[in-house]
Every structure is written in structure tokens, then in C-alpha cells.
Design a protein around this nucleic acid. Structure first.
Lengths: 230, 230
DNA sequence: ACAAAAGTGTTCGCGCTACACCCATGC
DNA sequence: GCATGGGTGTAGCGCGAACACTTTTGT
């Protein structure tokens, strides 16, 4: 209980930044390639060390803004603490992992060593970062169906078809645009903008554009069972 | 990015240990009363500092076993990192909060300064521990309906009435024992033991005893919508 | 006119809630 | 017998999946 012989550790924050990229229509993760040892050449999650005057959440937001020019992270949440004693060499280091979501069609200026990679074919990863990425993937999948977290992956305005492609990329299976509309509408999450998108080159009816009414994280379907009466 | 001028911090683990106590039929939390400054007299969550050779999860389990003789914690999960710079005086300290669940009818030997308190009328709490407790409460409520987390609150064998009282205590509203049985049975979580409980003093049909078939955490109802086909 | 793509409506079924009814035991 | 409590059955319905049908555009 005395603080004298307490071991001190380095606290770092690491972000699994995900986006559904318009070109590939896949979930991709933001990684940077290490230029020096240890683990030189391997790919790492963006992040860094906690400063004295900030919380881990503040630190994570700051580091994303500073290092990879990501100011428009639409959602940022903790996914867990990674603390295996041998997870990195040198000073004992404990990491708080985060899930960060960037809307499609955002294309931030990235440093030269930084880029997007498909989440289901990760390059050789540094330290325990692959494990953290997998945890984030799992969290995102789980929350997509009972929260409004999809808003953080969609652009500000979108057609229902485009939105269903985003859901499909995350979940890995077909998502009916029809049902998607009804479910999100019933939950009060979807509003038509009144405008329409331009039709494709082969013609076709122009799609209506929609917007999410709520742009902050919210649990929209909290109870699988044991709902409170009324 | 050099490690030379990196600030080092103390990493601690803190547990919100909850149980539905048979006497009060309420959710109660395990707290100990601080005997010295800072925050002398206030109540604190059990926990302590991370050791060099352990993960935070291992540390939490160890500290609960050592300090409050809690070896039978049926469920232990991280609920988040609490890292406000001024959350405690002295060395910068970052806490990983845990939710721990103890089955009803367990009555571990506790130190003299340690005891159970009703969760919805917390005594004066030290540091940011009240906030951590609230987070844990919220997590438990949320997960009760779509996971099997209830197993960690129930004794090894129980009547359906007793189980429904446990669910009621956590959720704060009525839970129909009839429907509870059907739902848990359908999810394959419930098995009758074949034995029966003794009837109450006023008579009445003796209740059948049940057991949970699965005694590890599992998500039983992962999709509110967008289920994968087949 | 025809193809292409979007939007609407309908059917179906599952799973949860509510509640009535039947069963077993003590007095 | 009656009171007490446990267990079973059933009706209703909200929600989501699947899919056919209609509407609007370009060629």
C-alpha cells in the first residue's frame, strides 16, 4: 500500500481507426510502418504516450489529430487494456486500445509512412497490435445491430444503397436496403434530405439522399429480452 | 517519441464487486473504508497496484483473492480506464475498472473494514470510485438481456422464482419467472437438476431446482437486427 | 420500348409479453 | 377442503427477413 516501492509504467494509447473505403468497399484500418527497431518494418497502430495533463480519451483524440490529421473521427471508444508484461521491450508499457471510426469519403492527408490496409488481410503487425485490431473489429460488428454506430461510418448524406454497402462491409453478409430503411426509420435515426443523387451511367431512378438525425453514439435497441413494462 | 522523457504513472486496478444478497434481495457492492488520509473515512473499491509480472486482469483476480478472500468471482470483466489527471493526489495514477460478480449465497470472510452496501445508496465514496461503480451498474444492466451473465449472480442451484428475483434486483422491474424460463431454456442455458426445493412454511408446491448449463460468459443473443442469413 | 435502379407494400414467422389455467403441497 | 406457491398453455403482437411489385430515370 505504500507508494514508495510502486512500479511505474508507461501508459500509451493506441487506435484502431476503421473506415469503409469507397474504392474497395471494404473495411480498412489505418496503420503506419515502423522505420526503426524494435519491430522495424512492421505495421503499427497510431498512438503514443499519455501526457501528464490529459485523460486517455483526450490523449487519443489529440494524437490522432496531430499525427495523422484526423480531426473528423466520428466515434472514439475504449475497447480494453492490453497489459501483457512482455507486450513490448524496454520500459513496462500498458496500452489502452480504442476503436475509432471515420466516415466514408473522408480522405485525410496522411504522413508518408501511413496508409489504409484491408482489415481482413493485415500486414505483419508490430507487438500485440494485431490482437487489438481483432478486438476492435469484433466490437464494431457487435454494436452495429443494436446501436446507431453506423452514423460514424456513413458520409453526411448518402443513398440507402450506399449505406447498405457499408453495413455489408462490416457484417460480411448481405443487408437488404429495404429493411435497413425501415429499421433505422422506426428507430428515428434516419431523415430524408429532400434532395436526390444523380443516377448512374446506365440510367435508373435517382436515389433519395438521407441523413442520420443523431450524430452521437446511442444504444437504439437495448433489450433482447426482459424489457421494462410499457 | 524517445522513451527518455516519458512520464511514468502508477497503474492500479479497481473492482466493482456486485452480488444480489439473499437477505435484502438487492444488488450490493463490496467496499472497504479507508483508515487514513487521503479521503480517510470514505469508502473505496477493492484493488491495488499492478505488479511487474502480471496483466491487469491477473492483477485484479489476485488482489480480490488476497485482500477480500474472494476466490469465487464468477465473472470479471474490464469496464474502462479512468484517467483524469486529478483523480487522486500524489503520483499520477490511472485505473482500470472491473466489474466482478459473485453468486448469491456466497458469503466470503471479509476483513473488518470491508462490507456490502446497497448499490443504489452508496456511502460517501473516495476519489472517482462512485463514477466507476455507476459505470459497472450500467454495464451489468445492459448485458443481462443479451448474454448469459446472469449465471454469475445465481447460486449453483436455484428455483425459477429465486432467479427471477435476481433479475428483478438488477433490472429494477418485474421479471416474469414463466418467461424467464422459456427464454433461458430456448437459449440452451437452463437445465433442471431433477431435485426439488423444500416448500415454504405456509405450504405450496415445492419448486424444481435448476442449474445453468454454461458457466462461462457468452453472448446469447448477439443481433438485434441484421442477422446473418441462415 | 426497354433496361436499370430505387422505393413501396405484403407475407411470413419468430420470439417475447401477458395472463389465464392447471398442479402439488401444507395446514 | 382451502390457501399457497409452482408450472403449463395460449393468445397477441411487435419486429425483422424475404420478396414481389411499382415507380422513375437513361438510352
Amino acid at each position: 500500500m505504500t507508494e514508495s516501492n510502486t512500479t511505474l509504467v508507461r501508459v500509451e494509447v493506441l487506435a484502431v481507426v476503421l473506415a469503409v473505403r469507397p474504392i474497395t468497399r471494404q473495411v480498412e484500418i489505418l496503420l503506419w510502418q515502423r522505420g526503426r527497431d524494435p519491430e522495424s518494418g512492421r505495421w503499427a497502430l497510431p498512438g503514443g504516450t499519455l501526457l501528464p495533463a490529459e485523460t486517455v480519451d483526450e490523449s487519443m483524440a489529440r494524437q490522432l489529430a496531430q499525427k495523422v490529421d484526423l480531426t473528423r473521427v466520428a466515434h472514439l471508444e475504449q475497447i480494453g487494456v492490453f497489459s501483457a508484461p512482455d507486450r513490448s521491450p524496454g520500459v513496462r508499457s500498458v496500452a489502452t486500445g480504442f476503436l475509432g471510426l471515420v466516415p466514408a469519403h473522408e480522405d485525410p492527408d496522411l504522413p508518408a509512412d501511413t496508409g489504409w490496409h484491408p482489415l481482413d488481410r493485415l500486414p505483419p503487425m508490430a507487438f500485440d497490435h494485431a490482437e487489438i485490431a481483432q478486438r476492435a473489429r469484433h466490437r464494431l460488428r457487435g454494436k452495429l445491430s443494436y446501436t446507431n454506430i453506423g452514423f460514424a461510418l456513413a458520409p453526411r448524406e448518402f443513398t440507402l444503397n450506399a449505406l447498405s454497402r457499408i453495413y455489408r462491409a462490416v457484417l460480411g453478409h448481405e443487408v437488404d436496403a429495404t429493411n435497413l430503411q425501415r429499421i433505422l426509420t422506426r428507430r428515428g435515426m434516419l431523415a430524408p434530405t429532400g434532395t436526390r443523387a444523380a443516377p448512374g451511367p446506365a440510367g435508373g431512378r435517382p436515389a433519395a439522399l438521407y441523413r442520420f438525425t443523431v450524430t452521437e453514439y446511442r444504444v437504439t435497441d437495448p433489450f433482447a429480452a426482459f424489457r421494462p413494462p410499457e
